[in-house]
Design a protein around this nucleic acid. Structure first.
Lengths: 193, 193
DNA sequence: AATGTATCGGAACGCTTATTCCAAAAGACT
DNA sequence: AGTCTTTTGGAATAAGCGTTCCGATACATT
């Protein structure tokens, strides 16, 4: 049978997501992608159709690996509030320790592409709804375990905390430092009581 | 003496800001700018140097008109909390009533350009600090007038509410509707007590 | 009306872009 | 070892990009 593929699709998608995150969709050239992924021109078009398709595939890959990170927190033996704290701490840590690492591809995609590409907007919107649901479930859990006493339905706090999360990504790209981001998280989590 | 300019610089900058907001910096071509502004190619390069300079000028223009909107609220005869409520209501209203109107140029600039262009990052960062200061001053005012009783310094709440504001813009571009955005604002403002 | 200077429209330039194509290379099978 | 199918590198293509340039235009001045 034929020669095997000489690259790993997931590694390529991760590298592609990285370069799209740095330079945006329109700011990234095919040559940028080739050097970032190590792929040859032919392999790229053979395996990923074209630039736009590769963008969508790497956006979905990025979303999936984001989901997995959240699931890792979810599987820990913690109550909902502790899960929230863990998650926010790791998000802020990542933002602070990788200031050059250019923000969240999903946020960047929402800003640059969501109104021009329906499929991008679908991924971005699905991510929003899914993350909100997980956050809401953590909040419900904290309420059930009497760690929190809510004044509003858990779903609303899920929406609020997702908003906080989006804000953190933008603020980090707007030059906010560690203290600033930690302050935001502190007020947001305190507001649950 | 010479013939007069046949265009108004502010109107041009507003139109340019509009097209950059829709398509981003790299997604906007010179031809896009010419049709959006009505300018001729020569006039554009005569008056604004090049595309990148026009982008920065229109970003600054956008920031200034944003500042003016906030100042309009600031000049009203309201206490700080009422000013906050007025401002958030008008932001959400604008997002909901102009869903096609593609988000905030400053947020989009932070996502697309801030790490690649120092001047862009300066404008974005200055805007962050200035808006945070105004929000903080409103919060202090509300505290002084005993409308609010804070548990943390006003500055921290300013940072938090600016974060909320950024989040709203991203969430709106991620497909969030009126109820969702209003819920976020409600929780954020309730958290001041 | 004539003059002089700045604006303007559009052709032209050179570079970069995304994409295609083809011959050469390379492994899995018989 | 030979065959067959797929991958791969790189040249080629055509369209689009930002920018420059120049002749024609148009107005404020004399």
């Amino acid at each position: 049978m034929p020669k095997n593929k000489q690259f790993n699709k997931e590694i390529v998608l991760e590298a592609a997501a990285g370069i799209f995150r740095q330079k945006g969709y329109n700011g990234t050239s095919i040559d940028d992608i080739l050097t970032a992924t190590g792929l040859s021109r032919s392999s790229l078009y053979d395996s990923f159709q074209d630039k736009h398709n590769l963008y969508l595939k790497s956006l979905e890959f990025y979303k999936d690996s984001n989901d997995k990170k959240i699931q890792t927190v979810d599987e820990k033996n913690l109550n909902g509030l502790e899960k929230l704290e863990t998650m926010f701490k790791s998000v802020v840590n990542h933002l602070v320790e990788h200031p050059d690492d250019n923000g969240c591809l999903l946020v960047n995609a929402a800003a640059e592409m969501s109104k021009q590409c329906f499929k991008t907007s679908q991924v971005v919107c699905n991510n929003k709804d899914e993350v909100q649901d997980i956050l809401s479930s953590w909040i419900s859990d904290a309420e059930q375990k009497k760690v929190l006493k809510l004044h509003k339905p858990a779903k609303i706090y899920g929406q609020f905390l997702y908003n906080t999360l989006c804000g953190l990504r933008v603020m980090s790209q707007s030059g906010a430092g560690k203290t600033e981001l930690n302050n935001v998280v502190k007020v947001a989590l305190d507001s649950l009581n």
